[in-house]
Amino acid sequence: MNAPLLMIEDDSRLAQMVVEYLGQSGFEVTHASDGEAGLEQFQLIQPQLVILDLMMPGIDGLEVCRRIRSLPGDAARVPVLMLTAKGDPMDRIIGLELGADDYLPKPFEPRELLARVRAVLRRRGDTGNTTVSRTTPVLRFGSLDIDRDARTVQVAGQPCELTSYQFDLLVAMAERAGRVLTRDQIMEAVRGRELEAFDRSIDVHIGRIRNAIETDSKDPKRILTVRGVGYVFAKQQE
Results as ranks from 00 to 15, higher is better:
residue 38 G to L: 03
residue 40 E to A: 12
residue 40 E to F: 01
residue 41 Q to G: 05
residue 42 F to E: 03
residue 42 F to Y: 02
residue 42 F to M: 07
residue 43 Q to M: 03
residue 44 L to T: 07
residue 46 Q to T: 08
residue 46 Q to C: 02
residue 47 P to L: 03
residue 47 P to C: 09
residue 48 Q to R: 07
residue 49 L to D: 10
residue 49 L to W: 05
residue 52 L to H: 08
residue 52 L to Q: 11
residue 52 L to M: 10
residue 52 L to C: 05
residue 53 D to M: 05
residue 54 L to N: 10
residue 55 M to D: 11
residue 56 M to V: 12
residue 56 M to A: 06
residue 56 M to L: 07
residue 56 M to W: 07
residue 56 M to F: 04
residue 57 P to R: 13
residue 57 P to A: 10
residue 57 P to H: 11
residue 58 G to W: 14
residue 59 I to V: 13
residue 59 I to L: 09
residue 59 I to W: 01
residue 59 I to N: 09
residue 62 L to E: 14
residue 63 E to I: 12
residue 63 E to F: 06
residue 63 E to H: 05
residue 64 V to S: 13
residue 64 V to D: 03
residue 64 V to Y: 02
residue 66 R to L: 15
residue 67 R to Q: 10
residue 68 I to F: 00
residue 69 R to P: 14
residue 70 S to L: 13
residue 70 S to W: 05
residue 70 S to G: 14
residue 71 L to A: 09
residue 71 L to N: 14
residue 71 L to H: 13
residue 72 P to D: 12
residue 73 G to M: 13
residue 73 G to P: 09
residue 74 D to M: 12
residue 75 A to P: 15
residue 75 A to V: 12
residue 75 A to R: 08
residue 75 A to W: 06
residue 76 A to N: 10
residue 76 A to M: 13
residue 77 R to Q: 14
residue 78 V to G: 14
residue 79 P to C: 12
residue 79 P to Y: 07
residue 80 V to Q: 08
residue 80 V to T: 07
residue 81 L to G: 09
residue 81 L to N: 05
residue 82 M to F: 07
residue 83 L to G: 11
residue 84 T to R: 03
residue 84 T to M: 00
residue 85 A to D: 07
residue 86 K to S: 12
residue 86 K to V: 04
residue 86 K to L: 05
residue 87 G to Q: 06
residue 88 D to E: 03
residue 90 M to P: 13
residue 90 M to R: 05
residue 91 D to T: 02
residue 91 D to C: 03
residue 92 R to G: 10
residue 93 I to A: 01
residue 94 I to Y: 00
residue 94 I to G: 03
residue 95 G to P: 02
residue 97 E to W: 00
residue 97 E to N: 04
residue 98 L to N: 10
residue 98 L to Y: 01
residue 98 L to V: 08
residue 99 G to K: 00
residue 100 A to C: 12
residue 100 A to W: 02
residue 100 A to H: 06
residue 101 D to V: 05
residue 101 D to N: 01
residue 102 D to G: 12
residue 103 Y to C: 13
residue 103 Y to D: 15
residue 104 L to Y: 07
residue 104 L to G: 10
residue 106 K to D: 15
residue 106 K to G: 15
residue 107 P to Y: 11
residue 107 P to F: 11
residue 108 F to D: 13
residue 108 F to A: 11
residue 108 F to K: 00
residue 109 E to K: 00
residue 111 R to S: 10
residue 111 R to C: 04
residue 112 E to K: 02
residue 113 L to G: 14
residue 113 L to F: 12
residue 113 L to M: 11
residue 114 L to A: 11
residue 116 R to I: 09
residue 116 R to D: 14
residue 117 V to S: 05
residue 119 A to N: 10
residue 120 V to E: 13
residue 120 V to N: 11
residue 120 V to Y: 08
residue 120 V to Q: 08
residue 121 L to G: 08
residue 121 L to S: 09
residue 122 R to M: 14
residue 122 R to V: 15
residue 123 R to Y: 00
residue 124 R to A: 15
residue 124 R to C: 14
residue 124 R to L: 15
residue 126 D to P: 06
residue 126 D to V: 04
residue 126 D to I: 03
residue 127 T to D: 06
residue 127 T to A: 04
residue 128 G to E: 06
residue 129 N to A: 06
residue 130 T to V: 07
residue 130 T to K: 03
residue 130 T to R: 02
residue 131 T to K: 01
residue 131 T to Q: 04
residue 132 V to C: 03
residue 132 V to T: 11
